[in-house]
């Protein structure tokens, strides 16, 4: 049989060519810089965030070459504190989302793919838990389990995030499992683990990643809120949230130090906005791709 090349040509017009756009990449770079700085903080020549600089000592000092964002009421470098403060915020947000995704995501994929009573029950349980406001539960547990450490935060926030992740991943898995290519793999003799790893997970991960990023952003905000209630990490440890909480009392005389408030706030807000933007873009990017295919 001869093939008519004309009609079996690749139709490039049909190929979905979409761009993520420049803002996406600016946000991505900003996130990368913030994360890298936080990880590498001890090695990039920052002043100490805790030890006071007695050579250029000043309480509530102004912005200067030695102290880019000025100093706080204890004479500590605010820039260094912002960069170091990101460490606990990032640790807690990424850590708890990883925990939630590993447990919630894995459970969701297996339950949804296997279906049956296991899926029905676990879904009902997760829906029930979701009806409780997770933030309140986190506050309640933390206030009975002082002092707060990053580990406790990861554990509690992570567990409270499981139901949400479960629901999202379950939905994506059900959608993927209905696809004919999964059935096709099945009738070509593929067993369940292979189908899950080769067919389901590749289809589910874009949704999961987008949701993960949005989740990280909301955990950073949650940590900020906990810090306002004094329920985040305790001094001398500090995070973006506790920096803001400290600053809250210091914008009035006698200190009246706006640098303490503005810089951590700006950094945190820009970071959250970037995460949200990226998460949203990824979500719609992957959604549209799926719709087109």
């Amino acid at each position: 049989m001869d093939v008519d090349n004309k009609t079996v040509e690749v139709t490039l017009e049909n190929v979905v060519t979409k761009k993520l756009g420049p803002v996406f990449w600016i946000c991505a770079v900003w996130i990368a810089i913030t994360v890298a700085a936080a990880i590498l903080a001890p090695w990039i020549g920052l002043p100490s965030p805790t030890v006071v600089d007695y050579n250029n000592f000043s309480m509530n000092g102004p912005m200067s070459a030695a102290h880019w964002f000025g100093t706080n009421d204890g004479g500590q470098d605010i820039f260094a504190r912002v960069v170091y403060g990101a460490r606990i915020s990032l640790e807690v947000s990424f850590g708890s989302m990883l925990l939630a995704s590993l447990i919630g995501g894995t459970a969701a994929i297996f339950a949804a793919y296997k279906g049956g009573i296991l899926d029905t029950i676990s879904n009902a349980v997760m829906t029930l838990i979701l009806a409780f406001p997770a933030a309140l539960a986190v506050i309640a547990i933390l206030s009975f389990w002082m002092p707060t450490t990053p580990f406790k935060l990861i554990l509690i926030v992570g567990i409270s995030g499981i139901p949400l992740i479960f629901r999202v991943v379950r939905g994506a898995t059900l959608a993927a499992a209905r696809k004919e290519y999964v059935l096709a793999a099945h009738v070509q003799g593929a067993k369940t683990p292979r189908i899950i790893f080769k067919e389901i997970i590749p289809a589910v991960w874009p949704t999961a990643v987008a949701f993960f990023i949005l989740g990280v952003a909301s955990v950073i905000m949650l940590e900020g809120a906990l810090a306002f209630l004094g329920l985040s990490v305790q001094s001398p440890a500090f995070s973006w949230g506790t920096l803001l909480n400290e600053a809250r009392q210091k914008i009035y005389p006698p200190n009246q130090n706006f640098n303490m408030l503005v810089w951590p706030c700006l950094d945190m807000v820009l970071f959250i906005v970037s995460l949200n933007f990226i998460g949203d873009r990824l979500r719609s990017y992957f959604d549209v791709t799926e719709g087109k295919l």
């Binding site: 096709a184 793999a185 070509q188 593929a190 067993k191 292979r194 067919e199």
Partner: peptide, 29 residues
């Protein structure tokens, strides 16, 4: 016995290369 499904749009996994998908059916089958 093998089955050819109705819709070639959905019976191939959109995120895997076509060659790999055929190769896989040989590995499994």
């Amino acid at each position: 016995v093998a089955m050819i499904f109705q819709d070639p749009m959905t019976s191939l996994n959109p995120v895997r290369k076509v060659g790999d998908q055929i190769a896989e059916s040989l590995q499994v089958g």
